[in-house]
Amino acid sequence: MQNQPGQIPTGGENLLFLTDDQLRRGIEAMFFAYRAFTSDPDLILSELDYGRAHHRALHFINRDPGLTVTALLDVLGVTKQSLNRVLRALLDDGLVESRVGRRDRRERQLFLTEQGIALERRLSETQRARMRAAYRAAGPHAVAGFRQVLEAMMDRDTLRQYKALKDLQEPT
């Protein structure tokens, strides 16, 4: 029997007192879900000799055109050396363009080229389709709960970053 929205789960799971086994199953579900979530983009990326770091850079540059290298470093939480390697490949392959900052000429602002936009769209379409199907199958209450769980797992700084990004796209 399926639970109605707002009901306590009937699968023997008391949400206030989860056992180590229930927590382990949740961790394993996240591992397998992440593997599925990244599998389609990974195939596309491997054709281009790119990895997930390239995908994340493309995603966030697309989300916020003109993002500075410093801001991208902060969002991705990687070292300068690691990001430089990724950005160099994306710049050399004509997917990303770097421009002098408008306010501060020492800053470098990043933009996707038409090719970069097309690749980012191709990568994200597979993930949006997977998320859309999962959200529809789970329903709105489960989606809200899922987001709440994900946000609760973030440390304070990460949650602040996420909420700042989330606000970027909200209508005014």
Score class of each variant (00 low, 15 high):
residue 1 M to N: 12
residue 2 Q to N: 12
residue 3 N to Q: 06
residue 3 N to R: 07
residue 5 P to F: 12
residue 5 P to N: 07
residue 8 I to K: 08
residue 8 I to V: 10
residue 8 I to M: 05
residue 9 P to C: 04
residue 10 T to I: 07
residue 11 G to Y: 01
residue 11 G to V: 04
residue 11 G to A: 07
residue 14 N to A: 03
residue 14 N to Y: 05
residue 18 L to Q: 11
residue 19 T to W: 03
residue 20 D to P: 00
residue 21 D to C: 03
residue 23 L to T: 08
residue 24 R to Q: 07
residue 29 A to N: 04
residue 30 M to I: 09
residue 31 F to W: 03
residue 31 F to N: 01
residue 32 F to L: 13
residue 33 A to L: 12
residue 35 R to G: 11
residue 35 R to S: 08
residue 36 A to L: 14
residue 36 A to E: 15
residue 36 A to W: 05
residue 37 F to P: 00
residue 37 F to A: 12
residue 38 T to V: 10
residue 40 D to M: 03
residue 42 D to W: 05
residue 47 E to D: 14
residue 47 E to I: 03
residue 49 D to Y: 10
residue 50 Y to P: 01
residue 50 Y to D: 06
residue 54 H to Q: 14
residue 55 H to N: 12
residue 55 H to V: 01
residue 62 N to R: 14
residue 63 R to S: 11
residue 63 R to H: 10
residue 63 R to K: 10
residue 65 P to W: 00
residue 68 T to A: 09
residue 68 T to N: 09
residue 70 T to C: 01
residue 71 A to M: 03
residue 73 L to H: 11
residue 73 L to K: 13
residue 75 V to M: 08
residue 75 V to Q: 05
residue 76 L to S: 07
residue 79 T to C: 00
residue 81 Q to C: 01
residue 83 L to D: 09
residue 84 N to Y: 08
residue 85 R to Q: 08
residue 87 L to S: 08
residue 87 L to H: 08
residue 88 R to Q: 09
residue 90 L to P: 04
residue 90 L to Y: 06
residue 92 D to E: 14
residue 92 D to C: 00
residue 93 D to W: 03
residue 94 G to W: 01
residue 94 G to S: 07
residue 97 E to S: 14
residue 98 S to P: 04
residue 99 R to T: 14
residue 99 R to P: 06
residue 100 V to H: 09
residue 104 D to T: 11
residue 107 E to F: 07
residue 110 L to G: 11
residue 110 L to D: 11
residue 111 F to P: 12
residue 114 E to L: 09
residue 115 Q to L: 12
residue 119 L to T: 13
residue 121 R to V: 04
residue 122 R to W: 03
residue 123 L to K: 13
residue 123 L to T: 12
residue 124 S to G: 03
residue 127 Q to T: 15
residue 129 A to C: 04
residue 130 R to Y: 13
residue 130 R to F: 14
residue 131 M to C: 05
residue 135 Y to C: 12
residue 136 R to S: 07
residue 139 G to F: 04
residue 139 G to P: 12
residue 140 P to T: 13
residue 140 P to D: 14
residue 140 P to H: 11
residue 141 H to Y: 12
residue 142 A to E: 04
residue 146 F to K: 02
residue 150 L to W: 04
residue 153 M to I: 00
residue 153 M to L: 15
residue 153 M to V: 05
residue 155 D to W: 01
residue 157 D to A: 11
residue 160 R to T: 13
residue 161 Q to V: 01
residue 163 K to N: 05
residue 163 K to Y: 06
residue 165 L to H: 02
residue 167 D to R: 13
residue 168 L to N: 01
residue 168 L to A: 12
residue 169 Q to G: 11
residue 169 Q to R: 03
residue 172 T to H: 07
